[in-house]
Design a protein around this nucleic acid. Structure first.
Lengths: 223, 223
DNA sequence: CCAATCCGTCACCGTCTTGTCACCGGCCCG
DNA sequence: CGGGCCGGTGACAAGACGGTGACGGATTGG
């Protein structure tokens, strides 16, 4: 379980990181908007704690950018009494907020509630319905016990699909996540990758293709 | 989208119900613990707004009972400054809370955030009456559960129509929004697009064309 | 060093999307 | 009445898009 914490106050950052680490979460830290987005793309955290006030630009932009590319739960950190900011953050897609100062216990309770609501279990093992993906071993396991080795690219593809299981993932986002922003016109790569992954899945679970094509949009993992 | 509101204050209940109804939600009301659980079983709402302080027993019991039988999102309503209550509620499975007094705008933002987080409502969703448009999935969904895949252009057309639902949108604005200022005299494109969209809608909901032609002006989405 | 695997690229096919043309009927106005 | 403008409809074709097979360079593992 990986949590990205974004705040420019080093003390608060350390405190939050300490509390979360103690509770068994992996913590990624960032102190400003740019590094935060870079860390997000690199680490794909399961949850984001985001300060509204950042040195360059505001947390709103970070929130919107994250929300554009992922439905990951985002919790905003703010000082007391700025309700307009809160409403704006929530309208931008944030899922919850905490007013500073807060107790570690409150923080943990809220983080747990968010994660439970998001239905996330483990960082290295993503599960959706009858299949689960082991990121480290690059392995797909089915509920009936069968399992399947994936290549590096296939793993990255399945990772983002399973993280958004049931929702369409845009071709652009798939390309960005698997290959990392090369020429955006390179749909041929995705075509082949999906083809090869389907071929593997077909041999493991015949007649039950979980990858649904959403024509003109992208792909979706059946739930 | 159905929301159960539980509170013993009739004024607050009416206010909340009014705000939610105005935003297009169906509202079920209950004033005490027993009726709340009965209403929950009967109506199976998509979200529950639950006051912690109820005449008989506390909202905690209701929350636990609901959580035992369903993972539906629960938002607790409470008075300011009782952090212990909040932590307890969240540990019992509540997903969020609101401190009274709150503005209708805040309420709506939080409710929407909660629904989106629960995956019940998508982020880029425009709704007008019985139809809602998912911009990302390029899908139209009807209140009766039917849904319909749209092409890229059809989505763009419906987007501006649903955003101005009930009002006429001029031909020029439609052309500009869908095609982005090519030759402005190109009404033939729009004619065909509307024709094709109507054809799809006709198959999905026969005899009920929601696209009204305003001759010499443009088109209008029936409310 | 050899064989297997991974993966980027090309070519081809069928289907869907979309721009274009041609024609129809209704309406207004001289 | 007849021409012009408007919106509706059908048909066609170019192009985009997804699926599939094949080739070959690069990398990996024995």
């Amino acid at each position: 379980m990986k949590i990205l914490v974004v705040d420019d106050d080093p003390d608060l950052l350390a405190l939050v990181a300490f509390a979360l680490t103690n509770a068994g979460y992996a913590v990624v830290k960032a102190a400003d908007a740019g590094p935060a987005l870079a860390a997000f793309d690199r680490e794909l955290p399961n949850l984001v704690l985001l300060d509204i006030n950042l040195p360059s630009g505001s947390g709103f932009d970070v929130c919107r950018n994250i929300r554009d590319r992922s439905p990951v739960p985002v919790m905003m950190l703010t000082v007391r009494g700025e309700e307009e900011d809160l409403v704006r953050a929530l309208e931008l897609g944030a899922d919850d907020y905490l007013t500073k100062p807060f107790s570690p216990r409150t923080l943990l309770a809220r983080v747990k509630a968010l994660l439970r609501r998001a239905g996330i279990e483990s960082a290295d093992m993503l599960t959706a319905g009858p299949v689960s993906l082991d990121l480290e071993a690059q392995t797909l396991a089915f509920a009936d016990g069968a399992s399947l080795r994936l290549t590096r690219l296939e793993t990255r593809l399945f990772q983002i699909l399973i993280a958004q299981a049931g929702h369409v993932v845009t071709t652009e986002r798939l390309l960005a996540h698997v290959w990392g922003h090369r020429g955006s016109g390179d749909r041929q790569l995705l075509k082949q990758l999906v083809h090869r992954l389907r071929h593997k899945l077909e041999r493991a679970a015949p007649g039950n293709d979980p990858l649904q094509t959403e024509s003109g949009v992208g792909y979706r993992l059946k739930t």
